[in-house]
Structures are given as structure tokens and as C-alpha cells.
């Protein structure tokens, strides 16, 4: 599907509990994600960023507001349509990889395809190609217990991308990785975003990871309160410094960047 606005979030609200015990995780968030964008969502713990991602991934239902994927309201999806949405329309990259430990890497990658009618045999070419881009060709026939953390997360990334989803959602993709493997993963994600136009939305608290994005939305107390765009040709270091300044001020720093 080639829509300009892949994702539209319109006045999204999410409240847990009722009355005096109510907790407002999202308080009316509105933004769009354009095709080919690498969007980062940053915020402190409890800011609502994970809730936002969970709403988009249909892991939780918003209290009000709309989420449109290529113009289609996902709240209208039924059981099978919902399964297809999760399996084909979005790709999800979990913080803790969530590979099935009794399947090989190849079988894990093929799983979303086979769930929706395409056998691993048919898709073997695509699997091999994407695995090559992520540097895990030699690991395809190993079980997760035989892979390092970085290899697991890259396998999970290939699994998330194998169905050519409209958007890749990444929940703290480097949260369980060391710096070296984090860099490898982020380089790969940036590569597929740049070369293949894959739209990525990543939730992170890591400024170094956020520096790979083309745009950052900062969320605090369930509201979007700042946006940073990476300038045309701006170096990652420079963008990282601007991100750090924003997060510092969010934490009570004196730099007046907001």
C-alpha cells in the first residue's frame, strides 16, 4: 500500500482505572508518521511512550481517539483482520526479542509469513536476502539459545520486516543490547529505512539510539510537548547533542532549548 501518511494518531487518550484512581497515560496525542520516516518517541519512564506504542500495536485499546493506518481506522478491525494487521501490516520489534526458543532463526523469521498463508519454502529467497542485509545468514539454522543477544535482536528485526509491513514498530530495540550490538542493529535499521524506504517508529529512552531518527517526538505526562527534526545533512553527533540538551532540560537542566 503506498499511502503518504502511513500512520495518523488523532487525539489519542488512554486512561487506566476509574474515578479518583484513574491514571491518565495518554492525554490527547496527535501526530502523523510519513512514509519512509524514521520516527523516534522519547520520554522518561511513565511518560506514556510505551502505552502509545501498545495502542498502535493493538496490545491495548485507547480510551478515545483514533489510529489510522493508511487511512483505515484500526478500531474497526475484527478478529481475523486484527490478526492480519498484527502479522502483515505492522512489524513489531520487542525489547526482549521474543523469539520462540524451540524454532530455528529461519523458522522464527518465517513464522509471520506462514501464519498468513505463505510457506517458508516460498519465502526462502526473501528470508536469505534480508538475513544477508542484517548479517545473520550463517545463523539461520541455529536455535536462539545458540545466538548472542545482538544476533537474536537482528533475527527479530528480520522477522519484523519479512512481511514488508507498512510500518515497523520498535519498543526499546536496544534496551537489552550492549553498545556494540546496539550500534550494529541501529545501523541496519537505518540502512533499510534509507535504502528500502521502510517506515520505522521506535520508542526509546536512549539518546544515542534516537540520534538515528529523522524526527523525534518527546512525550511527557501523556502529552507531546516537543519535536526535534534532524536537519538536512545534519551529522548524527550534532543531532545527538540537541537531543541530549532537550532531555537534560526535561530533567531540570538550565539549557533553554524548548
Amino acid at each position: 500500500m503506498t499511502c503518504e501518511k502511513v500512520l495518523q494518531i488523532i487525539d489519542l487518550k488512554k486512561t487506566y482505572g476509574k474515578g479518583d484512581a484513574a491514571s491518565h497515560a495518554l492525554c490527547g496525542v496527535t501526530f502523523d508518521v510519513l512514509r519512509g520516516e524514521f520516527l523516534g518517541i522519547m520520554g522518561a519512564s511513565g511518560s506514556g511512550k510505551s502505552t502509545l506504542l501498545n495502542c498502535i500495536a493493538t496490545a491495548t485499546v485507547p480510551t478515545s481517539g483514533k489510529i489510522l493506518l493508511c487511512g483505515k481506522d484500526i478500531s474497526t478491525l475484527s478478529g481475523k483482520e486484527l490478526a492480519e494487521y498484527r502479522g502483515k501490516r505492522i512489524g513489531y520489534l520487542f525489547q526482549q526479542f521474543e523469539l520462540l526458543d524451540n524454532l530455528t532463526a529461519r523458522e522464527n523469521i518465517a513464522l509471520p509469513l506462514s501464519l498468513h498463508g505463505r510457506s517458508a519454502a516460498d519465502a526462502n529467497g526473501d528470508i536469505e536476502a534480508l538475513a544477508k542485509e542484517f548479517g545473520i545468514t550463517d545463523d539461520l539454522d541455529k536455535f536462539p539459545s545458540e545466538l548472542s543477544g545482538g544476533q537474536k535482536q537482528r533475527t527479530a528485526a528480520v522477522r519484523a520486516l519479512i512481511t514488508s509491513p507498512d510500518i515497523l514498530l520498535a519498543d526499546e530495540p536496544t534496551g537489552a543490547l550492549d553498545s556494540k550490538n546496539s550500534k550494529i542493529l541501529l545501523d541496519k535499521l537505518a540502512f533499510v529505512n534509507r535504502e528500502h524506504g521502510v517506515t520505522v517508529t521506535a520508542v526509546t529512552h536512549d539518546a544515542a539510539a534516537a540520534a538515528y531518527c529523522s524526527r523525534i517526538l518527546f512525550i511527557r505526562d501523556g502529552k507531546l510537548f516537543h519535536e526535534l527534526r534532524r536537519g538536512e545533512g545534519e551529522a548524527r553527533d550534532s543531532f545527538f547533542a540537541r537531543i541530549t540538551a532537550v532531555t537534560a532540560q526535561m530533567g531540570g537542566g538550565s539549557a533553554n532549548v524548548l
Partner: peptide, 18 residues
């Protein structure tokens, strides 16, 4: 003991019937 796998499957798009 393998319940987490079923959670992952549902997140990857497996329906309840699957």
C-alpha cells in the same frame, strides 16, 4: 511453561483460533 510463546504468537498475528 511455554505460555510466553503463545503470547508472542498472538503478538505476531496468530488468531485465537490459530
Amino acid at each position: 511453561e511455554s505460555r510466553q510463546r503463545y503470547v508472542t504468537l498472538s503478538r505476531l498475528g496468530a488468531s485465537a483460533d490459530d
